[in-house]
Amino acid sequence: MSNRIHKTCTAKLIDSIMLLAVCIPVTVSAADNTVRTPASGAKAKGSTIERGRYLVQVAGCNDCHTAGYAQAEGKLPEKEWLLGDRLGFRGPWGTTYPANLRLTMSNMSESEWIKSAQTRKLRPPMPWFALRDMDKEDVRAIYRYVRHLGPGGVPAPAFVPPNQTPSGPYVQFPGPPH
Rank of each mutant, 00 (worst) to 15 (best):
P157E: 06
H6E: 15
M126A: 04
T104V: 13
A30D: 10
E73Q: 10
P38Y: 01
I5H: 13
Q172C: 13
Y69N: 05
F173H: 09
I17T: 08
D133Y: 09
Q118R: 14
H148M: 09
Q118M: 10
S111F: 07
M18S: 15
E73S: 14
F129A: 14
S111C: 05
R144H: 10
R86G: 11
C9H: 14
R36T: 10
E112A: 13
S2Q: 07
K75P: 04
Y54P: 08
L20G: 09
K79R: 09
E50I: 15
T10R: 15
Y54W: 07
A59D: 02
M134N: 09
R53A: 12
W128P: 01
I14Y: 12
H178A: 11
K12L: 15
D85C: 11
L149F: 02
Y97F: 08
G152W: 03
P25H: 02
P155F: 00
T10A: 15
T95I: 05
S16L: 12
T119Q: 07
L149W: 02
C9Q: 15
E112F: 08
P166V: 06
A117H: 00
P176W: 09
L101R: 01
E78K: 03
P176Y: 07
R140W: 05
G46C: 10
R4S: 15
P92T: 10
A141D: 09
A70I: 11
G68L: 10
I14P: 02
S47E: 12
K79N: 10
D85K: 04
V171G: 01
P157A: 08
A72E: 11
P124A: 06
G60H: 00
D63W: 07
T119R: 06
G74A: 07
P92G: 04
A11L: 14
V139K: 03
M1W: 09
Y97E: 02
K45W: 08
I24M: 11
M108G: 00
Y170F: 09
C64Y: 00
A67G: 05
T34E: 13
D63V: 05
G153A: 11
V154F: 05
